[in-house]
């Protein structure tokens, strides 16, 4: 940064792969704090809808009421509407008792086993009062055609489960059931430089053993030139194995590996509550709102106390 006057940077995002439940993207020209903030917000602060209140009418299953309520809570519900919903604690329409359309969705479940075969009660048996908030589609990866639903409880002949559940908006910080993220992680992009001169001093066998020393397939032998090439730098797990191997072979400095401090490769997997891409966007949105909240706090003295130099910086621009 020239002069240190401005911390402002313009991070770049490049999407590598995008599926409904998974996104892989590069985040460049920023530092770990921003990347980590994004990660943390995705895990803990992006709101979703999840079952929060269960009223059990009949439960003659083997699992007890709390057990079933806990399981219901963990079922991901489609939460595209969550960003626009209200938290039931600050919902004016219903005094926060969580019974209104702005902050809650009602579910019903009625299941009774009448045959000798075990009946699986799944998330598909949950009937929602709102078609936009339903249990997520779940299919067996081995048998993608059939929608199976998430098993809640199994019933045998004569057992019955009847309940009413209310789903509310919430964030992962309060309970993991509201977290839309299954996996959010990032890594520094590695920069791998092979010292070609030194590499040439190795015999073919040595090259092979050196390549083998990495638990992940980062390097390979070019079939034509018999030269060691970096095939997949991102598979490198910063395990230092190749460097140690090189040292052990007496060829220190055979390879130089550095983490690029300003570029990150994100992997985001969602639970299905919202699309992974939406998860990223929502996270950015929330991060922005949080920063706005800091910036807009009028009481400068308080802001100074709270944020010190950063507060002054925010005010000064």
């Amino acid at each position: 940064m020239d002069g240190g006057m401005s911390y402002q940077r313009f991070p770049k995002v490049k999407i590598r792969e995008m599926k409904d439940d998974m996104v892989k993207f590069e985040l460049r020209e920023t530092d770990a704090s921003v990347a980590n903030a994004l990660r943390r917000v995705m895990i803990a602060e992006v709101p979703t809808v999840a079952i929060d209140l269960v009223e059990i009418e009949v439960n003659s299953s083997v699992l007890n009421d709390e057990f079933i309520a806990h399981r219901l809570g963990l079922i991901p519900l489609t939460s595209d509407r969550a960003m626009s919903m209200r938290f039931s604690r600050d919902c004016d329409a219903c005094d926060g008792d969580g019974q209104c359309e702005f902050c809650s969705v009602e579910f019903h479940l009625r299941a009774k086993c009448l045959t000798d075969q075990t009946l699986d009660v799944t998330s598909k048996d949950l009937y929602s009062s709102d078609h936009t908030v339903v249990p997520v589609e779940f299919s067996d990866p081995n048998d993608p055609g059939e929608q199976r639903g998430i098993i809640i409880v199994k019933l045998r002949r004569g057992q019955e489960l009847r309940l009413r559940a209310i789903a509310r908006k919430g964030i992962g910080k309060d309970h993991a059931k509201w977290s839309p993220a299954a996996t959010v992680t990032f890594m520094y992009e590695p920069m791998i430089r092979i010292n070609e001169d030194l590499m040439d001093t190795l015999s073919l066998e040595e090259k092979r053993t050196w390549i083998e020393s990495s638990p992940t397939k980062v390097f390979d032998l070019d079939p034509v030139t018999q030269q060691v090439v970096v095939v997949e730098p991102e598979l490198y797990t910063y395990d230092d194995e190749v460097i140690k191997k090189a040292d052990a072979m007496g060829k220190s400095g055979l390879v130089e590996i550095e983490a690029k401090e300003d570029s990150f490769i994100f992997t985001v997997e969602s639970t299905g509550a919202i699309k992974a891409s939406q998860l990223v966007l929502n996270a950015i949105e929330i991060l922005k709102q949080k920063l706005d909240a800091v910036r807009l706090s009028d009481d400068t003295v308080e802001a100074d106390d709270q944020f010190g130099e950063l507060g002054a910086h925010l005010r000064g621009g």
Binding site: I43, A44, M187
Partner: peptide, 10 residues
């Protein structure tokens, strides 16, 4: 969880 360490596999 967000304060917990994580690996690049997540």
């Amino acid at each position: 969880q967000e304060d917990f360490p994580f690996s690049e596999r997540g």
